[in-house]
Design a binder for these strands. Structure first.
Lengths: 354, 354
DNA sequence: CTGAAAGCGCTTACAG
DNA sequence: CTGAAAGCGCTTACAG
C-alpha cells in the first residue's frame, strides 16, 4: 500500500485555487481577474470578485514575483563606504525595498576603472535596474560603462538632468541662493567663498546660486574673495587661510561643502577669530560633521533618505517604462532645507581683524 | 513532431541549480549550505561557498519564502541615522541580507521611550529576529522591552557579553592597550586622557586598556591627567582645554572616541600647539571625521561592515537555536585594527608649552 | 473567453 | 552526508 505523501503545510490559508474552486473556474481565470486582463467575461469576473471578497483572499507577493517577470532586483553602486551620506541613503533604500519586496544588491566601485567589473558582477546577479550614488553618477567612465551595458539606471544627486537617465536631485543653485540670502539677512556684506571641486557639476551650481543672491542684493562679484577648494577638509583649511590672510576680512564665509566649512572654523579659531561673533561660516550638505563640530554648522540639508526611497521606486518604474518603450527618463527634484545652527550670526559692525 | 516548449525566461541568471552544477552536487546540498545546516561535509561546503562567490549568486527571497518556512525577516533597530557608523553598518547588513535572501526591516528608535512602539511595529511586520545597533544595545529601556517581547536579538558593539542575548563586538580594552603601546613606542611618557560617556560600558573598557598599558610600562596612573568627556565634540573641546591649561603639558592625548580627538586637535591648534610635533592626539572608532580632519587621526578601526554581516548571520542562527531550545547565545569577538595617521608622532624631547 | 501544462527558484519530507 | 521527488502560489506560453 502506497503511503500518501503528506501535503506540505502552507503559510497561506486562502489561495488562488480556493477562489477558483469556489467559483467553479480554473485558477487561470482568477489570475486574469487579479491582473485586470480584459479577456474575461464580465459575469465571470464579477463572480470571481465576489469569491475573493467572501474568502478574503490576498495574492502572495512571493509567488507572484517568482512566477512572473515583475522587476525586483536592484543594483546599487556606491563609492566610499564611510561617508556620512551613505548611511542615510542605505537606510532609505533598505526601508523602501523591504516595503515593496524589491531586493537590493550593493556593490562597491572605488575607482572609475572598476566600473566595468562592478557592473558586470551586478548584471550577472540578474539586476533589473541600477542606482548610482554620488559621486559615481558624475564619473564619465562609469556612465559610459552603464550606457554600454544598456542597463536601466537612476542617478542620485547628480548635478544636472539627463536625457539618457532618470535623476533624483535637489536644486543646488536655489539652495545656495537660500543660504546666501540668509547670510545677507544677518547683515553680512563682505563675503568669502570656498569653491568645490572643479570636476563636480554641483560646484558650479552652488557658486552660481551664491553669486546670484549677491547680485540681487547689489553686491559686486569683484568684492567677493573666492578661493579654490576640492571638497576635502585639507583643501578647506588652505582656502580659508588664504581668505583670512589679509584685510579687509570677510564677515562671512560660505564653503561649498561641510568638510571645508568645518576646516574653515578650525582655521579661524587658530588665527584668533571668534565664530560666529567675528566671522560667520556656513557649509553645504548637512553631513555628520556639520552637527558634531563646535560651533555646529549652518548648512543646507538634502532629504537623503527620502531620495533613496524615491530612487528605489523610480528605478522599478523606469524598468517598466523601458520595457514598454514609452516616454523619457523622469527627472525628480527634491526639496532642500536651510539648517541654521551656531556657526552663523549677525554681522559685526565692522569687519574684524585676527 | 512535437515542438519543444520554450523554456521560460527567468529574471535571475544565477540560480541554485547553476551553483549546484558548478560544484557538481545537487541543489539540495547548496540549499543546505545556504541555510547553514550542519550536515554537509566541510569540503563540500567550502566548494559551494566558493562557487557562490564566483558566480555572485544571491538566493531569491521570493522563492525561499514561497517554498519554506525559513526565518528570513530581520528587524534592525537603530538610533541616529546620520552617524558615520551607520553607513558602513547598513552596507554590510544589506550586502549579507541580499546574499542570504533575508529581508531586513529597519526601524528608528530615536528615544528609549519609543522602544516599545518601534519594536511593536517590527513584530507586527512578522520579524523572526532583531538586531540592535549601538547605542541602543546599552539602553536599559530598550533591553527591557526586547526581553518583554521575547524576541530573539543580537546586540552589536555592546560593551560586554550577555547571557540573555547574542553579541558581536571588539575587545575595547585590548584595542585601547594597542593604541597606548603604540604611543609609548613613539617615546611618549606624559599622557592626557579624555574619558568617554560615563554611562557607556566601553568608556571604562577603553580607559582600563589605556591604564593597563601605562602600568605595564611603569608609568604611574597619578602622573596621567584624565578629564571627563561625553563622546561629543563639544565635550572634547572642553576636556582638551582643561588638559592643556597648565604645565606640565602632556605630549600625547588619547581621547575615547574620534569626535573628542578631533576637537582636541582643533583646540590644540587654537592655543598654539603643533600636532603632532608638540602634541600627539589619538582617537577611537575610525569614524569618517577621523580621516577627514587634518592632521588625520590615528585611531582604532572596528570592522563595522563585517560585524554587520555577522549580525545578519548570527540572528538567523540564533532564531534556529532558539527554536531548537539548545545552547546559549553566542558571543562573537571581531578583530580591531590600529590605524596610524598623521595626528601622532615621535615624542618631543621635552614637553612643550603653548 | 477559458483552461491544462509547465515552470519560476527554492524547500520540505522522505529515502538511502 | 547526499539526492530525487513533490510542492509552495502564482504566471507565462500555448491551445482551443
Amino acid at each position: 500500500m502506497a503511503t500518501e505523501r503528506q501535503r506540505r503545510k502552507s503559510n497561506q490559508s486562502v489561495t488562488i485555487r480556493d477562489v477558483a474552486a469556489h467559483v467553479g473556474v480554473s485558477p487561470m481565470t482568477v489570475s486574469r481577474v487579479i491582473n485586470r486582463e480584459s479577456n474575461v467575461k464580465p459575469e465571470t469576473r464579477e463572480l470571481v470578485h465576489a469569491a475573493i471578497r467572501t474568502l478574503n483572499y490576498a495574492p502572495s507577493p512571493a509567488a507572484r514575483s517568482l512566477a512572473g517577470s515583475v522587476p525586483c532586483r536592484i543594483g546599487l553602486l556606491y563609492d566610499n563606504p564611510s561617508t556620512g551620506y551613505l548611511g542615510e541613503f542605505m537606510l532609505g533604500a533598505l526601508d523602501e525595498s523591504s516595503r515593496t519586496g524589491a531586493q537590493v544588491l550593493v556593490e562597491r566601485c572605488g575607482e572609475p576603472e572598476m566600473a566595468a567589473a562592478a557592473l558586470g558582477k551586478l548584471l550577472k546577479a540578474g539586476i533589473d535596474g541600477l542606482i548610482l550614488t554620488p559621486p559615481l553618477c558624475e564619473a564619465e567612465r562609469v556612465l559610459a560603462e552603464v550606457k554600454r551595458a544598456g542597463v536601466v539606471a537612476v542617478a542620485v544627486a547628480s548635478g544636472h538632468p539627463s536625457e539618457r537617465m532618470a535623476t533624483i536631485r535637489i536644486d543646488n543653485e536655489a539652495a545656495a541662493r537660500d543660504l546666501t540670502e540668509y547670510l545677507l539677512s544677518l547683515g553680512h556684506r563682505h563675503f568669502g567663498f570656498i569653491k568645490g571641486h572643479p570636476n563636480h557639476v554641483v560646484s558650479q551650481q552652488r557658486q552660481q546660486g551664491f553669486l546670484a543672491a549677491l547680485a540681487a542684493a547689489g553686491i559686486a562679484p569683484e568684492s567677493v574673495r573666492q578661493e579654490q577648494g576640492y571638497f576635502s577638509y585639507r583643501s578647506g583649511l588652505e582656502a580659508a587661510e588664504r581668505l583670512l590672510a589679509e584685510e579687509p576680512y570677510p564677515t562671512a564665509i560660505f564653503a561649498a561643502n561641510d568638510d571645508m566649512a568645518a576646516a574653515a572654523v578650525s582655521l579661524a579659531h587658530r588665527i584668533g577669530f571668534e565664530v560666529p561673533e567675528d566671522l560667520s561660516i556656513a557649509g553645504f550638505d548637512d553631513t555628520p560633521i556639520a552637527a558634531s563640530v563646535w560651533p555646529a554648522l549652518t548648512t543646507i540639508h538634502q532629504p537623503v533618505a527620502a531620495m533613496a526611497r524615491a530612487a528605489i521606486d523610480l528605478v522599478l518604474e523606469e524598468v517598466r517604462r523601458h520595457r514598454e518603450g514609452t516616454g523619457a527618463p523622469r527627472q525628480l527634484l527634491h526639496p532642500h532645507t536651510l539648517i541654521v545652527r551656531e556657526s552663523t550670526g549677525i554681522a559685526p559692525p565692522e569687519p574684524v581683524g585676527g
